[in-house]
Simulated assay, not measured.
Amino acid sequence: MSSKQPDTGRLTEPCEGYLVTPPLLEAASFADRLDHALTVLPVAAVRLRLAETSPETMKRTILDIREIMDRHDAALMLDGFPELVRQTGCDGAHVEAEDVAAARKILGDDFQLGAACGFSRDLAMLAGEKGADYVAFGPFGAEPETEGLALLTWWREMMELPVVAAYSPASEMADLPLPEMLHTLAATADFLALGVTQDGHSFDALWQTPEKFLPLFAETAKD
């Protein structure tokens, strides 16, 4: 992920995209969508979620996705499976906050490590202490979530560790314009995670027409 350095006026820095794939059994069926989204949007990282299958198939999927990532300036983060990060050349892993210490022991200091913290300040602070390179709050939904937004704002104002705001709608958005929640998250977080619905399925509104989400990242839009 990009190496933003928090400092005075940090809240004025533009947000970047952080794409999350649905669980993939193989890469071919998703390759074109991923490549297109990476071409259109200012993406700092992609979190690859793998469907449970054989280790050999999982490695093949990772390597195929890596070929796509190599064409774009974005980090490849593996959802869980930190042991596979070293074996396949990913940039890092994304794990639950409680698993950060164990994952850091596996990864060492050469790989990035993100922590899913729900809406817990305590878990986020613990993850930072144990070696996380960023924390992720959420998932946020389409409706206002006052406490979650307050935590997100507090973290970005007070803490140096970058923060990801994960957005997962309850179901597919029937139409656009984009919900106001998305604009609020993009204006508050360092990175905005998009790509799956709350049930873990593909967020097709994003993957089919990523252009419609470009206004969220207007300040970092690609030429």
Score class of each variant (00 low, 15 high):
residue 134 Y to E: 02
residue 144 P to Y: 04
residue 123 L to Y: 07
residue 117 C to V: 06
residue 136 A to V: 03
residue 139 P to N: 05
residue 125 M to G: 11
residue 123 L to R: 14
residue 152 L to E: 06
residue 125 M to I: 11
residue 134 Y to Q: 04
residue 129 E to G: 15
residue 139 P to M: 01
residue 129 E to D: 14
residue 128 G to Q: 01
residue 141 G to D: 06
residue 137 F to C: 04
residue 144 P to Q: 04
residue 117 C to T: 08
residue 123 L to F: 11
residue 133 D to S: 13
residue 136 A to M: 03
residue 128 G to A: 05
residue 131 G to K: 03
residue 150 A to H: 07
residue 141 G to C: 00
residue 132 A to L: 08
residue 140 F to N: 05
residue 145 E to K: 08
residue 127 A to P: 07
residue 129 E to S: 14
residue 146 T to S: 15
residue 140 F to R: 04
residue 151 L to K: 07
residue 131 G to L: 08
residue 120 S to V: 01
residue 134 Y to K: 03
residue 150 A to T: 00
residue 134 Y to V: 00
residue 137 F to G: 00
residue 131 G to V: 06
residue 128 G to I: 01
residue 138 G to R: 05
residue 133 D to A: 03
residue 133 D to H: 14
residue 148 G to W: 01
residue 125 M to R: 11
residue 137 F to M: 03
residue 118 G to L: 02
residue 137 F to Y: 07
residue 136 A to Q: 10
residue 117 C to R: 03
residue 119 F to Q: 00
residue 129 E to K: 11
residue 127 A to E: 04
residue 122 D to T: 12
residue 117 C to A: 09
residue 138 G to Y: 04
residue 128 G to E: 07
residue 131 G to E: 06
residue 132 A to Y: 02
residue 152 L to V: 06
residue 147 E to A: 13
residue 141 G to F: 01
residue 143 E to G: 15
residue 141 G to H: 07
residue 140 F to D: 12
residue 126 L to N: 15
residue 145 E to W: 10
residue 120 S to N: 12
residue 150 A to M: 05
residue 148 G to K: 02
residue 132 A to T: 00
residue 138 G to A: 08
residue 144 P to H: 04
residue 120 S to H: 05
residue 124 A to K: 06
residue 145 E to V: 09
residue 140 F to G: 10
residue 151 L to P: 00
residue 124 A to I: 02
residue 149 L to G: 07
residue 136 A to H: 00
residue 150 A to K: 10
residue 143 E to T: 11
residue 119 F to S: 05
residue 121 R to E: 13
residue 143 E to Y: 11
residue 129 E to L: 15
residue 152 L to W: 11
residue 144 P to R: 06
residue 127 A to I: 00
residue 131 G to S: 04
residue 126 L to G: 15
residue 126 L to H: 14
residue 117 C to K: 12
residue 128 G to N: 09
residue 147 E to G: 11
residue 130 K to Y: 11
residue 144 P to C: 06
residue 139 P to W: 02
residue 145 E to D: 15
residue 136 A to F: 00
residue 132 A to K: 03
residue 151 L to T: 09
residue 148 G to Q: 07
residue 123 L to G: 12
residue 122 D to G: 12
residue 143 E to Q: 14
residue 123 L to K: 14
residue 129 E to P: 13
residue 117 C to P: 01
residue 147 E to Y: 09
residue 139 P to H: 02
residue 121 R to I: 11
residue 123 L to E: 13
residue 136 A to T: 03
residue 146 T to R: 10
residue 127 A to L: 05
residue 126 L to D: 15
residue 139 P to A: 05
residue 150 A to R: 09
residue 129 E to A: 15
residue 119 F to T: 02
residue 144 P to F: 12
residue 137 F to V: 02
residue 134 Y to F: 08
residue 129 E to N: 13
residue 135 V to W: 10
residue 121 R to N: 14
residue 138 G to L: 04
residue 130 K to G: 10
residue 139 P to Y: 01
residue 151 L to M: 03
residue 135 V to A: 12
residue 118 G to D: 03
residue 117 C to H: 07
residue 124 A to G: 02
